[in-house]
């Protein structure tokens, strides 16, 4: 999966949780919570969505690493690269 494909998948998962969000204006370095007004349940659903889409197990202690778009791309890069090889 390329970085662009990863980003598209992440935003698709996010879109299911916050269908009203405008991703064109999403700052990749600012937390989703702050930009999209997500709550704990939204965050949990987002992590479940990533788990399903990328097939990775995400411990609760790692949730903070998935707070921004950049964070997600970095976190998911390793399992995605492993899947390619």
């Amino acid at each position: 999966m390329t970085r662009d494909e990863m980003q598209a998948t992440i935003l698709r998962v996010l879109g299911e949780i916050a269908p009203e969000a405008d991703f064109a204006r999403l700052d990749p370095q600012v937390s989703f919570r702050d930009q999209l007004d997500l709550d704990s349940m939204d965050v949990l659903n987002f992590v479940i969505g990533l788990h399903t889409a990328f097939g990775v197990d995400i411990p609760e202690a790692d949730y903070a690493k998935l707070a921004t778009l950049e964070g997600c791309l970095e976190y998911l890069q390793v399992p995605c690269a492993a899947a390619r090889t």
Binding site: S40, M41, L44, V47, I48, H51, D57, I58, P59, E60
Partner: peptide
């Protein structure tokens, strides 16, 4: 909660709420 969630798959985790 921290202990329970560490042992659970993401789909079965609980929120404090």
């Amino acid at each position: 909660l921290g202990d329970a969630n560490a042992r659970r798959p993401v789909t079965e985790r609980l929120l404090a709420g």
